[in-house]
Design a protein around this nucleic acid. Sequence first.
RNA 1: GGGCCCGUAGCUCAGCCUGGAUAGAGCGGCGGCCUUCUAAGCCGAAGGUCGUGGGUUCAAAUCCCACCGGGCCCGCCA
Length: 519
Amino acid sequence: MISKLRGYEWASAEAFKRAKQERRSPIEIAQEIASELSSQDWVERAEVVNGYVNVKLSVEGYKRWLKERPGKKDKKVAIEYVSVNPNKPWHIGHLRNALIGQVLGNVYDYHGYDVVRLDYIDDLGLQVAQSYWHYLKYGLKEHPRMDWAVGLAYVEAAQLFEEYEKEIREILKEMEEKGIAREFVEKVLEHQLITAANYGIKHHMRVFESDIARLFDRTIALLKEKGFIVYQEEGELKGTWTTKDGKVVIRSDGTATYLGKDIVFQLWKMGWVKGIRFVKRKDPTGEVWYSWKEGEEKEINADIVVNVIGMEQSLPQSQIAKLVKEIYPEKEYIHVAYQRVRLKDKAFSGRKGTWVGYSADELLEEGIKRIKSKELALAAIKFFILKYNPSKEVIFDWNKALSTEGDSGIYIMYSYVRARSVWRKSGMGGEPELREIDDVDRELGKWLVAAKEYWEKALSYHDPSALADYALELASAFNSYYSKVRILGNENKLFFTYWTMKRLEETLNLLGIDVVEEM
RNA sequence: GGGCCCGUAGCUCAGCCUGGAUAGAGCGGCGGCCUUCUAAGCCGAAGGUCGUGGGUUCAAAUCCCACCGGGCCCGCCA
């Protein structure tokens, strides 16, 4: 019945629609809606302005709406993010993936879903093979961080690839058959995870391709048997097994393609195949379940699979989605496609080494240098990356990334700290009692009750930038409020200040940003 | 050739899904505001053919079609 909520304003497009259907004046209908609303106890007054129904919430309305929380959902979400090749340090692009994934996990969590955070470790990829080959041949580069040492070596290895392809493929085969590189990979991973820990990126499980590989034969047999993949009898693809739209899953030599391997992993998440074992380990981010050849068998049985993967992989992702839809029509398979972070004139490339100078850790270091606080530097960086809609390319700029004014994480934090400081000085223990509301309160109040709308948007669009938008709107409304009214000594004003503090803290937490007490 | 994403103020973006009140922010530039709850802040003025052209509609930045510009993808590679 009511369309756009902006706290105390409902734009009543509804009136226009009904006016057309019922052949009546929209103003008349808007007036009907207004008087209907006026009788509700959460409404103080509703009136028609320019054909819109403006609603002023009552004291009762504010009290009730501000406390509203989503209920528990009976759905399990498996969200995969980061999944960086274990042969280089994280650069700012990987960080974008990590932050989007972390925040979407938080958002699902907030909305009552059962969330499992997954990290996929491709320890059998060609990139790792190149790095491992280089390591065997030339030893390790001098660097305190293994991810850096290997990342720098990889740039050289990539240049030598054509010349030594045969040798490298031999190594890859040995990796697959004997697992010779697992230890090397885990060492790199451990150091990559120092970055994850710095940024507060968490997972429940890390799944290695070498462990998923144990499920290949069984899964593929099942896919064949049930007719989800088809055998090509003739033509260019003769002897291969493909998806129904002709993408090769099993090569004519019987090995799995990248797509084939990914399908196995995705189906495992949904419980179509089972049998991966895990051991609990302590890594730089905390306690995490690592897949391993022995240990406790675990399954997820996800109802919703969310994968944070670059936009350039849209095509294979849509093919997997199609296959999953056939097997599980009731489940959701979501590809959160994000655009790259790049420099004005070039992209970050692991192979070309253009990430040097733009690693996630260097960004944090520079942030701490400029802002003089790790917490605030993290707030600035995270906010900068998350405020862009994932479908937009981010052109990296040091000054913007580490900005302390305007549309920035520091601005939000400052507003929070300001509200908190006033609150502390008031000496109020709990929630202040609201008795009356004036127009200045409503300017702020409308943003307080609008949180739900923005957070739901973040959920349904898989878009953390909705949270950043909300935080900015609320912070800005509060700063304006602060400059207009004297809060201390006025319990009604303290009510709005209290809720601003709460909302900003909640929003920052959803964004994966820890609040500070003062600044 | 086919497909996906982006195009809104000098610059960086929000709004588009679900059409409706004078298209909103930040940065930069201009002018104000600290003896009063944190000035990392606030207020004011300036700045817009919402890529272009059609269409649908009482109404289009928003929906549909075509085109233009930028990025990406389309291998039995990974």
